[in-house]
Nucleic acid binder design. Structure first.
Lengths: 236, 236
DNA sequence: TAGTGGTCTAGACCACCGG
DNA sequence: CGGTGGTCTAGACCACTAA
């Protein structure tokens, strides 16, 4: 649909499929603009996406080159800087969701500041245990304002809340601010994640935003340490 | 120096200092281009930086708005998606470095693939414990090819290897691919990080790249769980 | 319907790299 | 030095929002 995206996708495919090999030089932007019948700026924008994904490197004065990564790592890199719900992340596998708590509460100070709410706002509070192939991966403790995420039912919590938000409510999810930390598990977590005493957990605390900039979700996810890893590309 | 950077810095300062308040609307791109005597494209590029930093939101058809975050979180967000060495991250505080290992070794299979090296390459192997205000934060296990990071001495390992790479060798660091995971500490880590038995640790595994695309560092950092958190902004 | 931000162009000039 | 990618412009058209 969008030209620079199509170009980026095309070149990404060439890299992932091995048509363009590690350390190989790409065509110059000038030449690519002829190949794709577009301007140099559009080519640059397409290539900048692949730079952000960590797939290629540009050298002023020299050209553009495929990064030297073994292709097994590539799939991960491409998805890691994206942001999706649990269901989308593990699509294709057997996912089970156990809803432990589904209630509406008057939010406290902390949630109010995270979600930027007025004092008397009500929020959904949902606690779920999510399993992949019958192994419990994570306990999600989610808070969402009832006036933004309207009409949420327990049935939605049993499957994917994100697809309810996007497909049923027609809202667009834009970004998330996430913080990852580590601590020892407590007995509640040990029970639901099938952990031993003293096993650690990874905590992902997140505020997610809609396209219009309003915060719609504050969540604290407690991950079983065996099934947690977070990958990212950092550009200076 | 670069125009769109200057504009981004200027507007970021206005947000951080509170001149532009949460949810406040910015001038339109058309008007900003007059204020800063530049084209609409340049303004767009400047604002896109602030979008990536999570500070503002754009709505097509409406305008651009400051995100609703309390300013205490803002400093963190701005630095979190950047990538610097330990010394730079904690500059201003008292940093101590204890060098446990400083040797040159023939690299094994794993390091070879991570750094994309030939079979017979030698690499530095450096193990350091780094403390902030006399509290041990992290054990860093670092591998660097000797032909890229030339002339590295133990004295550099005692302070900042990154500043040696950038200032003395004149190399430019571009990006890093990082993976974060969690596990239980072992006795070695408990001793050096002053942990109790069964305390968890956070593992940050990283491959760092120079501007020319060559991998120059593979490192495994074991963080004391009390002093580890990783923050990031994810755009869909 | 008027005006926003998003995309795209053709062309200009610059900083940097290699021979 | 010629050629690379980086920045910047002026202006075009489009998708979307709000009145």
């Amino acid at each position: 649909m969008i030209k620079y995206m199509e170009i980026a996708n095309d070149i990404r495919n060439q890299i992932v499929k091995g048509i363009l090999k590690p350390n190989e030089q790409l065509l110059f932007e000038k030449d690519l603009s002829k190949v794709y019948s577009s301007s140099k700026m559009t080519i640059k924008k397409a290539l900048d996406i692949l730079v952000a994904e960590g797939l290629i490197v540009k050298r002023r004065g020299s050209g553009t080159f495929v990064k030297s990564i073994n292709s097994s790592e590539m799939d991960k890199l491409i998805v890691s800087n994206q942001f999706r719900g649990f269901s989308a992340l593990y699509s294709g596998k057997k996912i089970d969701t156990e809803v432990l708590v589904f209630q509406v509460i008057n939010c406290d100070e902390k949630i109010r500041t995270k979600l930027n709410l007025d004092e008397e706002q009500f929020v959904y509070n949902i606690v779920r245990v999510r399993s992949v192939n019958n192994v419990p991966y994570v306990i999600e403790n989610t808070y969402m304002p009832i006036n933004i995420i309207q009409g949420l039912k327990k049935a939605h919590a049993n499957s994917s809340i994100y697809s309810y938000i996007e497909e049923d409510l027609g809202l667009k999810i834009q970004s998330s601010h996430r913080k990852i930390s580590v601590r020892k598990s407590n007995s509640f977590e040990q029970e639901h994640l099938h952990l031993e005493a003293y096993d650690p957990v990874a905590i992902a605390e997140q505020v997610a935003y809609l396209e219009n900039g309003t915060a719609f979700e504050y969540s604290i996810s407690v991950h079983s340490y065996n099934y947690f890893s977070f990958e990212t590309v950092i550009i200076r």
